[in-house]
Design a protein around this nucleic acid. Structure first.
Length: 579
RNA sequence: GCCCUUGUAGUUAAAUGGAUAUAACAGACCCCUCCUAAGGGUCAGUUACAGGUUCGAUUCCUGUCGAGGGCGCCA
């Protein structure tokens, strides 16, 4: 049965290509077949005649007739006709559609996958949140989008590497370490004003308690003079904070690394655990610190300096990004001798290409858009092709609750965590809700709606279709192998043929989702597919007395179940057997 | 001021440059003796404005008006 299946679209593209070559030997148009929205326009429509009309200086309908005349005959085609301004509509024989059900059952989990990527190594870096506190709902969107995109790319034949960049070397981590230590000192009875721009969240206190439980007062220091000589917290809070960090490092000496490391491991572990529960897994967690330790940043900066892309001014080193279209030059090494985040990022991206990825995708929050020209500029300066880096910007998820926008600040400890959201709404609804919007579209995440109406979330509509099929097959109780032998030409009902057409679209949907970085189109497709199934469910009885018809219909819905499952898997949503 | 995203039914959103612009929710009705009504069916309702490119524009370009966000020797 499988061997007899011919994929209609590529078959037709081939036929049209031959016909066009005959009608207009010199033209270079690409054959484009689309699936008309209206059934009366056939199963496929070709616009080649309209594309050729100009160069041939002839009426498009006339050209269409010539193309049809030149079209090689095919067992799949029922009829062709010229319609509208010059479309060629193709109607397939029922047999050409029916065989699909058997093909899907034979292909199983692989149905819908393609060879678009040809095994090309592509890296997708996403989330990459600072490990300075719990992930919040904004990170959730990047996680859901990145994971789904990576799945879709893998399904389209790319060799995908999923990576999380760990910012474990920067000032933010120092602030977290300081915050933790100050809370720890409070446990030891020391009253030190806790800076307003340090991390306020309760998880900081939890870490301090953890350290105290493990080591008692081992890390206590007399900090009564810790504020001495520091800039006033009210007038210059950032310098005040930096002064505190410097004092903490001096007072703790070697022990500072322990506090820092403890906080890092705790927060990173928390994020990893959170993401794993969310179905988001990474092949690699790449440490920023290793870039510093391995001297990679020194090497890259020296290299760029040697080629005249870096100059010194006001005691700092500047990258001449204006030479690559950026609006101003950027500091890579501050006058205090510390590399900026940007310097590490240049090294990181060069490192990505040195690891052999031919394409690199960064998924960033939209607030980083101004960052793109300087990173691409740095890649170009370093002799890499900036076109191989693609940045997908994910717009913010703005949270609404009680009709009010919730402001979120990690440092102020004022936000809804991803974990809380998942527990309220459920992982499946979360994953689906997040990717239901185009990534570059602002997402208003109405918390009340997501919580209170979670049963009306479209994800349940799709899952219900899957569960319904599972229950019917269970009620049947027969041998699935019998379905492979089903006499599929029994499928003649209009709703059955409509469903077959929908199933046939799945591979194209997946391929386009990969090419456009648009996993949301899979979500929309699944809604349509579920609607077709529910429509058929209402219109036709599956478990009928006629054995041949029953097997054919069961084969059709079993194929539908397979496609629902394949699509939901791409989105990281479960496909329940019953609800 | 500069940059990014965006403007589609009452609301939230779809639509590789294609034919009569899709859905969901909200609204008005109808359908369980039947494999799960978390379902199906009927009705009403949309491309901000002005130009341009094109056989053909929601889509591409320019402008106007409106919305959201970003613009540190922070990360």
């Amino acid at each position: 049965m499988t061997s007899s299946y011919i994929e209609p679209k590529s078959h037709l593209v081939d036929l049209f290509r031959q016909a066009v070559r005959h009608v207009a030997p010199d033209s270079e148009i690409t054959i484009d077949l689309e699936r008309p929205k209206q059934a009366s326009h056939g199963d496929f429509a070709c616009n080649a005649a309209m594309q050729l009309a100009r160069s041939l200086k002839r009426n498009p309908r006339e050209v269409a007739l010539q193309i049809i005349a030149a079209l090689p005959s095919s067992d799949l085609v029922e009829k062709t006709e010229v319609a509208g301004p010059g479309f060629i509509n193709v109607f397939l024989k029922a047999r050409a559609k029916q065989a699909l059900a058997g093909h899907i059952l034979a292909r199983g989990n692989a149905f819908g996958s393609t060879d678009l990527g040809r095994g090309e190594r592509i890296q997708v870096e996403f989330v990459s949140a600072n490990p300075t506190g719990p992930l919040h709902v904004g990170h959730g969107r990047g996680a859901a989008y990145g994971a789904s995109l990576a799945n879709v790319l893998a399904f389209a034949g790319y060799n995908v590497h999923r990576e999380f960049y760990v910012n474990d070397a920067g000032r933010q981590m120092d602030i977290l370490a300081l915050s933790t230590w100050l809370r720890y000192l409070e446990l030891n009875g020391q009253k030190i004003p806790f800076p307003g721009n340090a991390y306020q969240g309760d998880y900081v206190k939890v870490m301090a308690e953890g350290i105290y439980a493990l080591h008692g007062d081992k890390y206590a220091r007399d900090a009564s003079h810790i504020l001495a000589g520091l800039p006033d917290a009210g007038t210059d809070p950032e310098s005040h904070l930096d002064g505190l960090i410097a004092n903490a490092k001096r007072l703790l000496d070697q022990d500072y690394a322990y506090i820092h490391g403890y906080a890092l491991e705790e927060q990173l572990g928390d994020s990893r655990n959170d993401l794993t529960e969310f179905g988001v897994v990474f092949d690699q967690w790449f440490s920023e610190r290793t870039l510093h330790d391995a001297g990679l940043i020194d090497r890259i900066v020296a290299d760029l300096q040697q080629h005249g892309h870096i100059y010194e001014q006001d005691g700092a080193l500047w990258f001449r990004s204006t030479a690559f279209g950026d609006e101003k030059d950027r500091v890579v090494k501050r006058d205090n001798g510390i590399y900026t985040y940007f310097a590490a990022d240049i090294a990181y991206h060069i490192n990505k290409f040195e690891r052999g990825f031919s394409r690199v995708v960064d998924i960033w929050g939209a607030d980083h858009h101004g960052y793109i020209p300087r990173v691409k500029g740095a890649l170009k300066a370093a002799g890499q092709d900036p076109e191989r880096l693609e940045v997908a910007l994910v717009q913010f998820a703005v949270l609404w609750e009680g009709g009010q926008k919730k402001s979120m600040s990690t440092r102020a400890g004022q936000y809804v965590t991803l974990r809380d959201l998942r527990r309220e709404v459920g992982n499946d609804a979360c994953r689906f809700f997040y990717v239901l919007r185009k990534s570059d579209q602002h997402l208003d995440f109405d918390l009340d709606l997501a919580k209170s109406q979670s049963n009306e979330n479209p994800v349940y509509y799709i899952q219900y279709a899957h569960a319904r099929i599972a229950r019917v097959l269970e009620a049947w109780g027969g041998d699935p192998a019998d379905l492979a032998e089903a006499d599929l030409d029994r499928l003649e009902h209009a709703q059955e043929l409509a469903l077959l057409n929908r199933l046939a679209e799945f591979p194209e949907i997946c391929a386009n989702a990969a090419a456009d970085f648009a996993p949301h189109s899979v979500a929309y497709y699944l809604k349509d597919l579920a609607a077709d199934l529910h429509g058929l469910y209402a219109a036709c009885q599956f478990l009928v007395d006629n054995e041949a018809l029953k097997l054919a219909r069961l084969a059709l819905i079993a194929a539908t179940r397979q496609v629902l499952r394949n699509g939901l898997t791409l989105l990281g949503v479960s496909a329940p057997e019953q609800m």
